[in-house]
Design a protein around this nucleic acid. Structure first.
Lengths: 151, 151
DNA sequence: TTGGTTGCAAAATGTTTGCATGACC
DNA sequence: GGTCATGCAAACATTTTGCAACCAA
């Protein structure tokens, strides 16, 4: 979602991706843009910091950020995740593509992996618990990245 | 770890499984027994409730529980997990066996699955990010259990 | 005896909520 | 203009920390 295809203004992008039934306020547009530009899961605090950095004259309340992340999530355009390497929740724009991360336990860098290792075996998993209807999964791979493993 | 092989007192079990370098206090022994008997990941609040139910005359502080869970974790006998279906951390005794759960999104029941779907493909995952040294992973399967899916 | 552990209270953290003001359609 | 969203402050829940009293080794 972060590849530049054509010179296209953010206004157009927002226009095409804006969720149904969510009123456009400048705060919501600002938050949406940050999520769009970031492409990686980020925390509410990250969003707040970016907001005040990009719009020093504006005011933003944490409650606004949280309320809107919840609103975006309910509208189906944002995914919330918790991770053992982070002490607070992370949010990302739902891009359509199913994605997992390989995460460095030292520097907490998150690298998306191209394919889902579980894609071909989801049915087998469902069979392991009779009557259970599987709808999804979460997966994180841990270890040490090239920069951190030497120490 | 919860199968009954021989009549064996908890004292013996504690004795054989007690971590190195951790002083035995009755609080720690009580917490350890609860984790041993429970076998599923439980929260600090669950442990507290069980403690005061099983030992109504004793006093326990949450700080003691948290401090000792951290101590057990550092000593390598307890695993802490965070989950998107729970708003607080869960703790379980490290049983040696690698385990994942299939979790109902409605009733939050956690059912261990017998095998690790990633077991045979961990090397492939490591190859997807050059230079990364994979040490572990977390996986949770979500859906609706037999009792909840009908509604 | 003595250093580690406990209970208590208070602090810290991340997140949510109540409410009056303000902004979007 | 009416309704919904915002900022602020306070509430909230979980977890952490400081400290004096206590207990296990």
């Amino acid at each position: 979602m972060n590849q530049k295809i054509h010179p296209e203004s953010y206004d157009d992008i927002i226009e095409r991706n804006w969720p149904e039934g969510i009123k456009k306020t400048h705060q919501r547009i600002d938050i949406f843009k940050i999520l769009y530009k970031e492409d990686l899961p980020i925390s509410a605090a990250d969003i707040y910091d970016t907001l005040i950095k990009e719009h020093p004259s504006e005011k933003y309340a944490f409650s606004t950020i949280y309320r809107n992340l919840i609103a975006f999530e309910k509208a189906g355009v944002v995914t919330k995740t918790v991770s053992s390497t982070e002490e607070n929740a992370l949010y990302e724009l739902k891009s359509g593509k199913h994605r997992h991360f390989i995460i460095c336990l030292k520097c907490h860098k998150r690298i998306p992996i191209k394919t889902c290792p579980l894609h071909d075996i989801m049915h087998d998993i469902e069979d392991t618990v009779p009557g259970f209807e599987v709808t999804g999964h979460s997966l994180e791979i841990y270890g040490y990245c090239n920069d951190c493993k030497s120490e």
